[in-house]
Write a protein that binds this DNA or RNA. Structure first.
Lengths: 223, 223
DNA sequence: TAACGTTTGTTAATGAGTTGTTAACGGACC
DNA sequence: GGTCCGTTAACAACTCATTAACAAACGTTA
């Protein structure tokens, strides 16, 4: 089992370094950011198993970041770290859908134990009984859906890869067209629709993944 | 959906009564015992969704009871209550497989929120979640109300965003029409009313936020 | 307070525009 | 010539802002 991936957002460089170092020795795979916006950008660009957020952050605070994350992912555990031990503050965090709130200074052992509590629950609840799921091998242009491999064309792979890199996020048609087709005239837009249609057919046997349209805007890959 | 079943073991009669009463009003189905052995007997005799244990108990302490429970059920969430806020003690609890540790005195609201956190993660849990608040993600056109994400259309998002940016302020119809629709003829005014109606429907499950009409003038979003 | 005109709430119908899907086309490569 | 594959075409299906229609609430006047 590969180590769990943790998004860690903490602007205090010293504390951040110590925590990151300790967590990596557990081992976890830790991605450390020092501001709300960079944290959000990281969250959008790759998958994580748990978020560990400082409340007081420059620009976007931890609560706001948590709200952004919860809006697109209702499952991922979110733990807060904070020097504010105010009761209202703790409640606010929990109301936002946070899973726990560790007051600073916290014991690093306690942090590790709590991380494990939540990872244990999410991994258990997500582990399917039968090996299933969808996996794109970009080098071999091979898409495995529930263990059934199928070979994609270039464009199919590029289109799907773009979507898979941004799960649960709204992708605008023109962004996608410029990224995959390089331009976005009317007919490319129609091609995009054709490819979305073909991809849906390929993904049809995995009910846990689907491509939704947002009228007039673009698509969202839900998984 | 029937309320989640909670095994509550607490020997302090007064505290026990208050907590039980509050939890039953959520509602949860609470079984209250006042000693370790009776708690263990109850656990063996009927199914529960979560355990809430005091650490200091007559005869068998909470840790021992937790060990007994964990030996036969590795899934069920266990929360400790304790006057001992000693760090080693907290760690001991977590090591035993407890999911959280609330130091006394604790806020009953926090207790309810934490119970919901763990119930949400177990498949059996089916109590209505405690209010989580409302959040509009403008990039994703996603409105989360009490943790339930819904995708908005352009205009819905633009209209709601305009209101959310000016909470508790009186917004004149024509200001809003010019900002969101770009003009304000009679029919656009009727459209605005249609959208207000739709937004109210979307926000209905969050009682802390509502859109009020000010006759002949416009609207106020209260939150 | 009764009656009236105006404003607002709500639902449904409409129609322009967007998207889904299948098939035909045509260049590239063999 | 044949196959592959991205594009284009054609049309069906759908979405959603607008418009209509009517009900309810409000405010004014008598």
């Amino acid at each position: 089992m590969s180590p769990a991936r943790i998004l860690f957002v903490e602007d205090d460089i010293n504390l951040g370094f110590v925590v990151r170092d300790t967590l990596e020795n557990v081992p976890f795979q830790v991605t450390h950011c020092t501001s709300g916006p960079t944290g959000w950008a990281m969250f959008q660009s790759q998958p994580f198993d748990l978020c560990l957020l400082d409340v007081m952050l420059p620009q976007t605070d931890g609560f706001t970041l948590a709200r952004q994350i919860r809006a697109v992912n209702t499952q991922i555990p979110i733990l807060f770290l904070s020097a504010l031990t105010d009761r209202d503050d703790r409640l606010e965090g929990l109301r936002l859908g946070a899973d726990d709130y560790l007051p600073k200074p916290f014991s690093i052992d306690e942090l590790i134990l709590k991380i494990n509590v939540f990872l244990r629950r999410t991994i258990i609840s997500q582990t399917p009984a039968v090996p299933v799921g969808t996996w794109l091998d970009r080098d071999n242009l091979t898409l495995s859906v529930n263990g059934q491999p199928q070979v994609l064309t270039h464009r199919e792979a590029a289109t799907l890869a773009y979507l898979l890199d941004r799960p649960n996020l709204l992708i605008r048609r023109d962004d996608m067209l410029r990224a995959v087709w390089g331009d976005d005239d009317y007919f490319m837009g129609r091609s995009l629709d054709v490819f979305i249609s073909r991809l849906r057919k390929r993904l049809a046997t995995d009910s846990s993944i689907r491509i939704e349209n947002v009228h007039g805007v673009g698509f969202v890959l839900r998984r």
